[in-house]
Design a protein around this nucleic acid. Structure first.
Length: 929
RNA sequence: GGGCGUUUAGCUCAGUUGGUUAGAGCGCUUCGUUUACAUCGAAGAAGUCGGGGGUUCGAAUCCCUCAACGCCCACCA
C-alpha cells in the first residue's frame, strides 16, 4: 500500500528541501495528495533535477528534518511492520529536568547505530523511546526556579496541587523539547510505543509491583534511620548521596567526670541522644565496664543512661577505642541498636535532631537550636566542665544530597522500605540472591537468563555492591512522583489500588523515582497485563548505559525484572564512559563548559556529531569532546558526499542492486577494491555486532577515504576513459558506493539516506537489507599486487616531491624489475608520467631512483638532479634496510624461535628477509653504477 | 582503608586472542587550482608504548613492583 506512495512523497520532500525549501507537516500532506494524483511523473522530474544539481558541499540542515519525517512515516520504526527475530532496546529515558546534553547524544548514537544495524540485518527491531519524570531532581529543579522568581517557600506558598501543577507544566515542556531533540539526533525509535515513567500505564505497573512486593512481605513500613535532607525536606536513598571530603573538628571528651571512658566525636551535639558506649569485644581496657550503665546529665531533657556494649565494628585503634552510640542519628549506631534489640539487651533510641534541622525537645536545654549552635553551646559546656580533652582538625567524608546539596542528617522516621535480604515466598531466594544470580550463574542456573556486561570489569563492581546492599528506602516526602499506593481509613490499610467507598485517604508520600524506572524494560511493554509485546520483546536484547548509573539503574532493573517476571531485563549491557570537555573536565553548568548537541547539529550535521562521539572511544572509558573532532567528522561526511556526487553525476545510468556475480572486474584495481569491500563488510559486521562502533567507524573511514577515494576513484578515471573498461568500471563504482552507503548507515544515517535517494528510488536505506559479502572469497593476490603498485606509485611520488618536480610536470620513468608491468596505465595516471618504460637493467643518465617492492623506479630528472641529496637519500634507505635485515637474521638464526613459533610467522619473516635482501642488492647495484 | 581505571607521536586517542619495521585524526613542514571534494590532493618530520623487574623463541599486549593522574566504594566515630 502506502509504502510506494510514502517513498515518492519522501523523494519530493527531500529533493525539494535540497533546494532550500522546508515543508511543514501540513504542506507535506498536501504534497502527498498531489503525488498520489500526479504520481510518478512528478517524482521523476524532481529526481533528475536533483541529480544534476547535487551541491558541492553537503548541507545537512536542508535534508535532515525531511529525511527523519520520511523515516518516521515509512512505518519501519515500528517493528510490527518488520519480520524476523525480535531485537529490542529500551531507550534509557532521559530525565525531564531539562534538555538533552552531549551524553544523550552519545547514548542515542550508540543505541540507534545498534538498532539500525540489527534492523538492516533483518531483525524485528524495536527501539522504544521514553522519558523519565525524575521525581526528586525535577521537583528540586522547579523549586529552585521558583525560588529564583521570589517564591521563598514554594511548598508552603503554593501548596501541593499548585506546585505539582507547576512542575507538570515544566516537565511537559521539557519532555516536548527532549522528544524533538531525539529526532534531531536521528534516533530510529518506535514513536507509537512512546512511554513516560509517569503516565497511566506506568502508574499501573508501579502500583502492581508495590502491591506484590507488599504481599510478599518485602515492602514494609518501618521506623528506621533515614538519610534526611533538611533543605529538600525528604528522605533519599543511599545511592542519591554524594560523599565529599571536608575538614571537621574532632572533639575528645568525657560525658562526665564520673564516666571513666573517653570518647570522640565530630558531632558532639548528637551526644545528647547517646544511649550506649560501644567498645570492641577484645579490648581489654574496657572489659571490666561491659554491661555497666552510666547515668549522666549533659543537659538533655532526661539524664542519659549509657550502657557499655560490645560491637565488632568498633576499631580499638581509632581514637580512644570507645564509641558513643547515638542510635537515632547514625546508620551504624542504629544497626547496633537493632543488634542489641535482637540480643535481648536493648538500648534506647532518643532523637535529638528534628526534620527541620533543629534540636528536638529531647535535647532539653538545647531544644530549638539549629545543630551548629547546639554544637557550639555543647562544646562550650564541655570546656567549662573541664571534660574536653582534645580538639583537633581532621578530614572526614560527609554525605551530601546530590540534588539539594545539603549535608544529609541521619534521622529516625517511619518510612516504606524494600527488604532485599528476605526470602521471597515460594521462591526460596531473596531479591539480593536474584540480583546476584542474574550476573553470575543466570537465574536458576539458566545460562539464557544471564546478563553479560561489557566491559566485563563492571560485573565485579555490580556484584560487590549487591553484597553490601541495605534495605531500600522507597518513600519520599516530595510531591512530584507516583503516590505511594496505600490507602488508609482509621486502622484499615489497603495496598495497590484505591478501594471503593468513602473516607479513604492515600499515603502522602511519593515513591523513589527509581522504583518506576527500575521496571522500565517491562512496564513499557504492557506489564502487568500479559501483553504480546512482553512476550515478543522481553527480555530485551541489549541495553547501553553510562557507568555512573550502574548502581542506580542497572541494579534496580535487574531487581524488578527478576522479581516480577522471573526474567532478566536484558541479555547484554554495554557500559559506556562519560564525555568530558577538552581539558578532561566534566561538563557542568557551574563550569559553564556545556555544549548543546543541537547547536553542533545545526552547525555541522547530526552525522558528524554521531561520528565524533563514537570514534576513537573505547568501551567503558571516558572520552573528550571538542569541536575540532566534529569538524574532522564533518569533513568525512563531506568526503563521502563528494565521492557519491562524482559517481552519481559521471555515471550516466547508475544501476543499483546488482549482484556481485554480475560485475566484470577487468583490472587489478577492480579486483582489489572488491576484495577490500568484502573485507570491510566482514570487519564492520563483526564490530557492529559487539557494539565496537569506534572500530567499525575507523574501518569505514579508512576504506572510504584511502581505498576508495584516493586509490580506486583515481584509478577509475583512466579506466573510464577506455571504452573497453568503461562500463565495467561504472558498475563497480556504483556497486561499491551502494554498499559503502549501507555499511555507513547505522552510524551516519542522514547523509547516507540522502545519497541513497539519488541512487535508488523505491526503497529507503533505513529498510535496506545489509548486504553480507561473507560468502565471497577475498582476492589476496589482487591485494598483494595492489600493494606493490601502491608502493611503486608512492616511490615515484616521493622522488617527485624530494626533487621538487612540479606536479604538472610530466616525467619520464623507467621501471626495472618488479611485477607491475601490466598496470602501466594506472601508474602513468596516478604518478603523472608522460613516458613509462620497463627495462631489464638500470638506465644510464641522470635519474633519481627508489627501490620499491621487488623492483626499482628511475625518474629522469634531466639536469635537476642533486647528486649529493640523492646519494644521501639512498644511503639512508640502505641503512634502514640493513638494520631491518639484521634484525630478521638474528630472529631467524634463533632455533628456539624457528622451532617454537608458528610456521606462518616464520615463513612470513623468511619471505620478508628475502625481499629485503633483494632490495639491498638493488641499492648496492645502483650506487655502483 | 579497600577497589578500579588511565599512562602509546606536539595534542586527542585506537591498538581485537602476545607474532613482520606500533597506527589514526588534529596540528606541524614542503609542494600543488587537472571539472567529486581547498571541508581537497601529494610528500614528509615526529614515539626507548610511564619507570624497573620477570615469564616467553618473541611483550605496548601476560605477571610482579614503583610512580603520577583520575574515578568509585567504605560503618575513621
Amino acid at each position: 500500500m502506502g509504502k510506494g506512495l510514502k517513498l515518492q512523497v519522501f523523494r519530493v520532500c527531500v529533493n525539494g528541501c535540497g533546494k532550500g525549501k522546508t515543508y511543514s507537516w501540513a504542506d507535506w500532506c498536501c504534497l502527498a495528495i498531489f503525488i498520489a494524483k500526479e504520481g510518478f511523473f512528478a517524482y521523476t522530474t524532481f529526481q533528475s533535477m536533483a541529480k544534476q544539481d547535487i551541491p558541492k558541499a553537503y548541507e545537512a540542515k536542508n535534508h535532515e528534518t525531511a529525511i527523519y519525517d520520511a523515516w518516521a512515516t515509512s512505518g519501519f520504526f515500528n517493528p510490527d511492520n518488520l519480520s524476523g527475530e525480535p531485537f529490542s532496546i529500551m531507550m534509557p529515558p532521559p530525565n525531564v529536568t531539562g534538555v538533552l546534553h552531549l551524553g544523550h547524544a552519545l547514548e542515542n548514537t550508540i543505541m540507534d547505530s545498534m538498532i539500525r544495524y540489527q534492523r538492516m540485518r533483518g531483525r524485528k527491531a524495536l527501539l522504544l523511546p521514553g522519558t523519565d519524570h525524575a521525581a526528586l531532581p525535577t521537583q528540586a529543579k522547579v523549586e529552585k526556579m521558583l525560588m529564583e522568581e521570589g517564591i521563598v517557600h514554594p511548598r508552603k506558598e503554593l501548596g501541593r496541587d499548585q506546585l505539582v501543577e507547576k512542575i507538570r507544566v515544566f516537565a511537559e515542556q521539557s519532555r516536548a523539547t527532549i522528544l524533538s531533540q531525539i529526532k534531531k539526533l536521528g534516533t530510529s525509535c518506535d514513536w507509537s510505543r512512546l512511554a513516560y515513567t509517569f503516565d497511566e500505564p506506568r502508574n499501573r505497573a508501579v502500583n502492581e509491583l508495590f502491591r506484590q512486593m507488599y504481599e510478599d512481605g518485602l515492602v514494609y513500613r518501618g521506623y528506621r534511620v533515614v538519610n534526611w535532607s533538611v533543605k529538600g525536606q525528604s528522605t533519599s536513598s543511599d545511592d542519591e548521596i554524594e560523599h565529599i571530603e571536608r575538614t571537621a573538628k574532632l572533639y575528645t571528651f568525657r560525658y562526665s567526670k564520673d564516666v571513666p571512658i573517653t570518647i570522640a566525636s565530630t558531632r558532639p551535639e548528637t551526644k545528647l541522644g547517646d544511649t550506649a558506649i560501644a567498645v570492641h569485644p577484645g579490648d581489654a581496657r574496657y572489659a571490666s565496664y561491659i554491661g555497666q550503665t552510666f547515668v549522666v546529665d549533659v543537659g538533655a531533657l532526661q539524664p542519659l543512661r549509657l550502657k557499655v556494649i560490645v560491637d565488632e565494628h568498633v576499631d580499638p585503634t581509632f581514637g580512644t577505642g570507645a564509641l558513643g552510640v547515638t542510635p537515632a542519628h547514625s546508620q551504624i549506631d542504629f544497626s547496633m541498636y537493632e543488634t542489641q534489640k535482637a540480643k535481648g539487651d536493648p538500648i534506647d533510641l532518643i532523637p535529638v535532631i528534628g526534620p527541620d534541622g533543629n534540636m528536638t525537645s529531647q535535647a532539653g536545654a538545647y531544644a530549638g537550636l539549629p545543630v551548629e549552635e547546639a554544637r557550639e553551646k555543647f562544646v562550650a559546656w564541655l570546656k567549662q566542665e573541664g571534660l574536653l580533652e582534645k580538639e583537633e582538625e581532621i578530614t572526614q567524608s560527609v554525605g551530601v544530597s546530590d540534588r539539594y546539596g545539603d549535608v544529609i542528617e541521619a534521622i529516625p522516621m517511619t518510612q516504606w522500605w524494600l527488604n532485599v535480604q528476605k526470602e521471597i515466598p515460594g521462591r526460596g531466594k531473596s531479591l539480593r540472591d536474584l540480583m546476584r544470580e542474574a550476573l553470575t550463574t543466570g537465574l536458576e542456573g539458566d545460562e539464557k537468563q544471564k546478563i553479560s556486561v561489557s566491559p566485563e570489569r563492571f560485573t565485579k563492581l555490580y556484584l560487590d555492591r549487591v553484597e553490601h546492599l541495605r534495605d531500600w528506602c522507597l518513600s519520599r516526602q516530595i510531591w512530584w512522583g507516583h503516590r505511594i499506593p496505600v490507602w488508609y481509613k482509621g486502622e484499615e490499610m489497603v495496598v495497590g489500588t484505591q478501594p471503593s467507598g468513602e473516607g479513604w485517604t492515600q499515603d502522602e508520600d511519593t515513591l523513589d523515582t527509581w522504583f518506576s524506572s527500575g521496571s522500565w524494560t517491562f512496564s513499557t511493554l504492557g506489564w502487568p497485563e500479559k501483553a504480546d509485546d512482553l512476550k515478543t520483546y522481553h527480555p530485551t536484547s541489549w541495553m547501553q548505559m553510562g557507568y555512573e548509573i550502574l548502581y542506580l539503574w542497572l541494579m534496580r532493573m535487574v531487581l524488578m525484572s527478576t522479581y516480577a517476571l522471573e526474567e532478566i531485563p536484558f541479555k547484554d549491557v554495554y557500559i559506556h564512559g562519560m564525555l568530558r570537555d577538552k581539558d578532561g573536565r566534566k561538563f557542568s553548568k557551574s563550569l559553564g563548559n556545556g555544549i548543546d548537541p543541537i547547536d553542533i547539529i545545526e552547525k555541522y550535521s547530526a552525522d558528524a556529531l554521531r561520528f565524533a562521539v563514537v570514534s576513537g572511544v573505547s568501551p567503558g572509558n571516558d572520552s573528550r569532546f571538542y569541536e575540532e573532532k566534529v569538524e574532522a567528522a564533518q569533513r568525512l561526511v563531506n568526503k563521502l558526499w563528494n565521492i557519491s556526487r562524482y559517481i552519481l553525476t559521471s555515471v550516466e545510468e547508475p544501476v543499483h542492486g546488482r549482484a556481485f556475480k554480475e560485475l566484470k572486474p577487468q583490472t587489478l584495481a577492480d579486483r582489489w577494491i572488491l576484495s577490500r569491500l568484502v573485507r570491510l563488510e566482514e570487519e564492520v559486521s563483526s564490530h557492529m555486532l559487539v557494539a565496537e562502533f569506534s572500530q567499525a567507524s575507523e574501518k569505514l573511514r579508512e576504506f572510504t577515504w584511502s581505498d576508495f577515494a584516493d586509490w580506486y576513484l583515481e584509478a577509475s578515471k583512466a579506466q573510464r576513459a577506455e571504452e573497453s573498461t568503461k562500463t565495467s568500471t561504472d558498475d563497480i563504482l556504483v556497486y561499491v558506493l551502494e554498499h559503502l552507503l549501507t555499511y555507513w548507515h547505522p552510524i551516519m544515517p542522514f547523509v547516507t539516506e540522502q545519497i541513497w535517494s539519488y541512487l535508488c528510488d523505491d526503497e529507503l536505506l533505513l529498510a535496506h537489507t545489509w548486504p553480507s559479502l561473507r560468502m565471497i572469497d577475498l582476492d589476496l593476490k589482487a591485494e598483494e599486487e595492489m600493494g606493490w603498485l601502491q608502493e611503486t606509485i608512492g616511490g615515484i611520488r616521493t622522488i617527485r616531491s624530494q626533487y621538487a618536480v612540479a606536479p604538472k610536470q610530466k616525467i619520464r620513468v623507467v621501471i626495472v624489475g618488479g611485477k607491475v608491468k601490466e598496470h602501466a596505465s594506472v601508474i602513468e595516471g596516478l604518478a603523472s608520467i608522460s613516458e613509462l618504460s620497463f627495462e631489464e637493467t638500470a638506465p644510464v643518465g641522470e635519474y633519481a631512483s627508489a627501490v620499491v617492492g621487488e623492483g626499482q623506479v628511475f625518474v629522469s630528472l634531466e639536469g635537476l638532479v642533486d647528486k649529493e641529496a640523492e646519494a644521501a637519500n639512498a644511503k639512508h634507505e640502505q641503512q634502514q634496510t640493513q638494520i631491518y635485515i639484521k634484525s630478521l637474521e638474528v630472529k631467524l638464526a634463533n632455533t628456539e624461535f624457528t622451532s617454537k613459533a608458528p610456521e606462518q610467522v616464520v615463513a612470513t619473516m623468511r619471505q620478508n628477509l628475502e625481499e629485503a635482501r633483494k632490495k639491498l642488492e638493488l641499492y648496492v647495484h645502483h650506487s655502483e653504477s
